[in-house]
Design a protein around this nucleic acid. Structure first.
Length: 742
DNA sequence: GAAGTCACG
DNA sequence: ACGTACGTGACTTCA
């Protein structure tokens, strides 16, 4: 069992290492020493995906499932990252060939045409121009079989779905596009409609389309073939569409995530923008097919001949982008970021999103009615106080009422010349004893909760599942954080009693509870580690109240019996440090004079001198390299760091914050990626991520086990790549609703 | 479609 | 001298 038959000298452990690219570094480095052919190395770089294919082959050859805890094999040294890609390619190629020979099986053609980094420019210049008129429309099974054979021969395919809309939990599949070589793409129409439809509002299927179930049955083996890479732009969308059609896309690559790993912080990663930027080609706007506004149609109503051009072009562009981006992972040393912290999220998030969370519609509805009543009352009072009717929801009109009509003090602001009526201003006015601004604040609070939450959430309840399904944008934030949209479930109220009522509407299914696990002070802990702040590290190791410790150090007061307001100030300073502190910002937050705020900061730097070093070093690094990094190698580009004027201040603070926020984001990503395996033996479902929190739904009788399993994964998520100098601790809460679980 | 406001970590 | 806390998304008003 030590050696793989047909692959003498390659132990199963090594194979496992190769498959996952990271591993016993010493062994791999030893082997690296045996290979001294720079040119071969060059051409082999960037082919790490082949490794994944070998998993099946090794299992096939040995009858030994590679049931290895691959986490053990992650490398400790980012410098070795690209070397591993090379080694993996070398070893895999010979090993696969030998195993295949032994088994007498056909091995899919190994990807050869990924251009080497050096050749990238030239190779792409020779590609055929993008020409939508050249694409093929696949209308029968025989034609589809030709494409399937081409995909098998090539070992990869760019893949794109066309659907009836944007909500991947509701829309229907309309067609599929494939591209195997740049310039050669096809569109497979499946459910296009034509004619007037029948009496029940349905439409007739257009002629000349392969039956949906026939086409899917033909494509399924290829789309699920572990030896064939499926390449897409924003693959989570297509993954979910295909999952709903009974197909699990694997393995997948995603050009959006490649762009994000390579150029995070530089620009957005939408396909149109990438195409214009990297291929100098402006794709056909979808509007030209669907129209806009009320008269817009859905894709199934687009004539097939027109659809072919648009749809197949997307697959063509995606393949070209992939060929451009893929080899750059090694060049930019972000292979691990992409392979370990971006791509594996696709199936994990897809499952979470498809699971959704149960929401109590009646509770939301009652609250909406309640808010409406109270707002009407407040509005009448506000108009009474103002001496006339106006739109309370209009900051412009409110400003005029407050400062022109009523003559309150508080000047203009902003470039538009409009009065600022933000919460700070209104609170100040209310504190001076004015009744109107106080009532406006109340009205605004209710308006916010009603329009954004109690009203809107009801519309997001999926009629089929009865649950709310958010969508995460993996490339949402430059720092590595994700973003939640449609609806955003990462900003559900929690800070006020009225807001928490909305959280109470997020409930567990019968017989289940909601389970919330969140990292305690993760960003401060990471700051302590990255900036090597001894006092902070020590406090975390000893499990101390970190804000009280800070206050004690700064103001020389004992922790026991500390005035809560002192602790509150220290807490604000700790947060400020994470954000790239400034006297002005702290002064505003604490509502204290700027001089005093600056004095606080000076004291802080005195007590924790490592902070200043971290800040200076980070800004200097950003200026020199144009990016900063997380502990796990994620790059956050800081393009405006060299700017002059106020922009420079923004860029500096962002650069100081990014490694901290980004490392925390990396940690929870790693935990999420490991979670499915860690809870596979449990009936628990992962539902939501809110930056430092994971929410689960779990049957009552599995709560204890689930907490133990989840906590273990979360607390050790940095390992083994990073051994933090401080422990990561996770708090757990359970309840029948999200408010109680928190 | 920009600006203003405010919900979250 | 300048003018700011870091990172997001959704809703409303208004040009």
């Amino acid at each position: 069992m030590d050696n793989i038959p047909g692959a003498p000298g390659i132990g199963i452990k090594i194979a496992a290492l190769l498959i996952n690219e990271y591993g016993d570094l010493d062994t791999l480095l030893e082997r690296a020493g045996e290979i001294k052919q720079p040119k071969r190395r060059e051409t082999l770089l960037g082919k790490a995906d082949q490794i994944r294919m070998s998993r099946e082959l090794v299992t096939l050859a040995t009858d030994v499932p590679l049931d290895v805890d691959f986490a053990d094999f992650e490398i400790q040294d980012p410098v070795a990252d690209d070397l591993l890609g090379f080694l993996a390619s070398m070893e895999f190629r010979s090993m696969t060939a030998r195993i295949a020979t032994k088994l007498g099986v056909d091995v899919p053609a190994m990807p050869e045409v990924i251009p080497s980094p050096a050749a990238t420019g030239g190779a792409l210049a020779e590609l055929p121009a993008i020409n939508p008129d050249k694409y093929e429309c696949v209308r029968d099974a025989a034609a589809l079989q030709v494409w399937i054979d081409r995909i098998k021969a090539r070992g990869w395919v760019a893949f794109d779905t066309e659907t009836t809309g944007l909500n991947d939990m509701i829309v229907d599949l309309v067609g599929i596009c494939l591209c195997v070589e740049a310039g050669e793409a096809c569109y497979i129409p499946l459910t296009h409609k034509e004619g007037e439809g029948d009496l029940f509002g349905g439409s007739n299927l257009a002629e000349g389309q392969i039956k949906l179930d026939v086409a899917l049955a033909m494509l399924k083996p290829v789309l699920e073939d572990p030896a064939i890479m499926k390449i897409g732009q924003n693959m989570k969308y297509d993954f979910k569409i295909m999952k709903r059609n009974g197909i699990t896309l694997a393995p997948v690559d995603d050009t959006m995530l490649l762009s994000y790993a390579l150029n995070g912080g530089k620009h957005n990663h939408g396909m149109d923008a990438l195409s214009e930027r990297y291929l100098d080609h402006k794709p056909i706007p979808i509007k030209t097919l669907l129209g806009t506004g009320k008269s817009a149609i859905t894709f199934d109503l687009v004539p097939i001949d027109e659809a072919v051009k648009y749809a197949a072009e997307d697959a063509d562009i995606t393949l070209r982008l992939w060929q451009k981006f893929k080899p750059l992972l090694h060049v930019e040393k972000v292979t691990r970021v992409y392979e370990k912290m971006e791509r594996p999220l696709i199936p994990v998030l897809a499952k979470m999103e498809m699971t959704g969370i149960k929401v109590d519609r009646d509770q939301l509805s009652r609250m909406s009615n309640n808010f409406a009543q109270q707002m009407a009352g407040l509005e009448a009072e506000i108009h009474e106080l103002a001496g006339g009717s106006f739109n309370v929801g209009s900051p412009k009109q409110l400003g005029e009422v407050l400062f022109d009509q009523m003559g309150l003090t508080g000047g203009k602001k902003g470039k538009t010349g409009a009065y600022s009526t933000g919460v700070d201003i209104l609170e100040d006015l209310a504190a001076e004893g004015h009744a109107l601004p106080a009532k406006v604040l109340d009205w605004r609070g209710m308006s916010k909760l009603k329009s954004t939450y109690t009203d809107a959430l009801q519309t997001h309840i999926n009629p089929d599942t009865g649950r709310v399904h958010t969508s995460y944008i993996i490339s949402g934030a430059s720092t590595g954080r994700m973003a939640s949209t449609d609806p955003n479930l990462q900003n559900i109220p929690v800070r006020t009693p009225a807001g928490r009522q909305i959280r109470e509407a997020f409930i567990a299914d019968e017989g289940n509870v909601l389970l919330s696990l969140d990292y305690s002070q993760i960003e401060l802990r990471i700051l302590a580690h990255i900036a090597k702040i001894d006092a902070l590290k020590q406090a975390f190791l000893e499990g101390k109240d970190i804000h009280a410790m800070t206050a004690s150090e700064m103001f020389g007061v004992p922790i026991e019996g500390m005035d809560p307001s002192i602790r509150r100030q220290a807490k604000a300073i700790n947060f400020g440090v994470i954000y790239g502190i400034s006297g002005f910002g702290l002064a505003r937050n604490l509502r204290i004079p700027r001089k005093q705020a600056q004095a606080f900061i000076d004291t802080y730097f005195e007590r924790f001198p490592e902070i200043r070093t971290y800040m200076d070093d980070t800004v200097a690094f950003a200026k020199e390299h144009g990016y900063v990094q997380t502990l796990f190698g994620r790059k956050i580009h800081t393009t405006e760091i060299g700017a002059k004027g106020p922009q420079a201040g923004f860029a500096k603070r962002a650069a100081i914050n990014a490694p901290i926020q980004g490392t925390a984001a990396d940690v929870i990503r790693r935990a999420m990626i490991r979670m499915p395996d860690a809870i596979a033996h449990l009936p628990a479902k992962m539902l939501l991520q809110v930056h430092d929190e994971l929410l689960f739904e779990v049957p009552n009788d599995a709560v204890t086990e689930t907490i133990a399993a989840v906590r273990d994964v979360m607390e050790n998520a940095a390992m083994p790549v990073i051994k933090l100098d401080v422990p990561l601790t996770v708090d757990a809460g359970i309840g029948n609703n999200w408010a109680d679980a928190h």
